[in-house]
């Protein structure tokens, strides 16, 4: 196990290097004038621009390896460059948005994963009954409509009509409290900071803003987890030891909870890692619908504007995260799977 973790960390630099080369070579397929579009994002701004001067100012016509070594030279010194699409240094752009996305992901993961598993188990237990069919149809709907459709509908119902869950991350009053000198930003997570500063209004307000995106994410991801849990649960239920347990007269509830569910969860855990990452990356659309300023929104913006230092920054940050998450998954795999645990 320890060896495995060490190996993981040893290959980390190679993967990060590979990612930078991949992204860089994609972007360098474009000519200098095309890449200048990073700096001019509105046709109206073209007027009066001396484009050749701008190109040489940003060094866009240098050979790609020079541009790459300039960039990597900065990275070695902890400088990921300037992100034109964010109007901030890349590191700052990522770290200022990271708490928002983390907060969203943290609060979303529990209802999404637990709800998905719960529904999946129910659906498997009621295999081929009406309940199963309904769940499957609903989950297909959840999976078949683009996320933005649900996002807008959630916004319409819970904000437009009911007025409960507004878009954005904070309302103006709560934001003013957070800006005030007495308020200490411990973590950047609004809910947590609100609790630590004993500002119940901030906690409440931050939470209100989280629900819309969470509900939207839940609709989309439930169907995914549900599907995996269901099929894995079905498979487990047909296994010999379950049949034996049933034959022995063990109560059905006990069979499902104690024997079947645990084993059925193994494949779920394997997909949980990529899923958390998917949640983080997949917030692109949810964040833009809800006007929620996070990493997803930034990634989309940087990609559209061909802001290469921005994309590289996000990609490297995601690689780090991916490796970290996979590590956690492997450990929990060992915890759940008795065969590995015993070794």
């Amino acid at each position: 196990m320890i060896n495995y973790i060490i190996r993981r960390f040893l290959i980390l630099p190679f993967i990060l290097f590979g990612v930078t080369i991949l992204v860089f070579s994609m972007i360098m397929m474009l000519g200098p004038y095309q890449r200048l579009s990073t700096y001019i994002n509105d046709p109206a701004q073209l007027k009066g621009q001396d484009m050749d001067k701008l190109i040489s100012k940003y060094g866009l016509d240098d050979p790609w390896y020079e541009q790459y070594s300039r960039w990597i030279g900065g990275v070695v010194h902890g400088d990921f460059g300037w992100s034109e699409s964010a109007g901030q240094p890349v590191t700052e752009a990522i770290f200022s948005r990271f708490p928002a996305t983390l907060e969203l992901a943290l609060f979303a993961v529990i209802p999404v994963v637990m709800g998905g598993i719960w529904l999946g188990v129910l659906s498997a237990v009621h295999h081929n009954q009406k309940f199963d069919h309904i769940i499957r149809i609903i989950s297909t709907i959840g999976w078949s409509f683009p996320t933005f459709v649900f996002g807008l509908l959630v916004l319409m119902i819970f904000y437009g009509v009911l007025g409960w869950f507004p878009p954005g991350r904070l309302s103006a009053d709560a934001a003013a409290i957070i800006r005030s000198a007495e308020f200490v930003r411990y973590t950047g997570l609004n809910v947590l900071d609100g609790i630590l500063n004993l500002e119940i209004n901030v906690v409440f307000d931050a939470f209100r803003h989280l629900i819309g995106p969470i509900v939207t994410l839940a609709i989309v991801w439930w169907s995914y987890i549900l599907r995996i849990t269901r099929s894995s649960m079905l498979e487990t239920l047909r296994k010999d030891y379950i049949r034996t347990a049933r034959a022995k007269g063990v109560a059905e509830k006990f069979v499902i909870n104690k024997h079947a569910r645990r084993n059925a969860l193994i494949p779920v855990v394997t997909v949980a890692g990529p899923m958390v990452l998917g949640l983080l990356g997949g917030v692109v659309i949810v964040e833009s619908v809800f006007g929620y300023r996070g990493i997803g929104q930034y990634a989309a913006q940087a990609a559209q504007q061909l802001d290469y230092s921005g994309i590289l920054g996000v990609a490297m940050y995601f690689s780090f995260l991916l490796i970290l998450i996979n590590l956690i998954v492997d450990v929990s795999y060992a915890v759940i799977d008795p065969r590995i645990r015993l070794e």
């Binding site: 290959i11 190679f14 993967i15 590979g18 990612v19 991949l22 992204v23 994609m26 972007i27 397929m29 474009l30 990452l277 998917g278 983080l280 990356g281 997949g282 692109v284 990634a299 989309a300 990609a303 559209q304 061909l306 994309i311 996000v314 990609a315 995601f318 690689s319 991916l322």
Partner: peptide, 22 residues
Amino acid sequence: MRITDVFMSIPFLVAAMVLTTI
């Protein structure tokens, strides 16, 4: 497998976006 890791490290939507933009 390392190449696979590299390709998996960029969020799918972002990677697809960059490539289609280019």
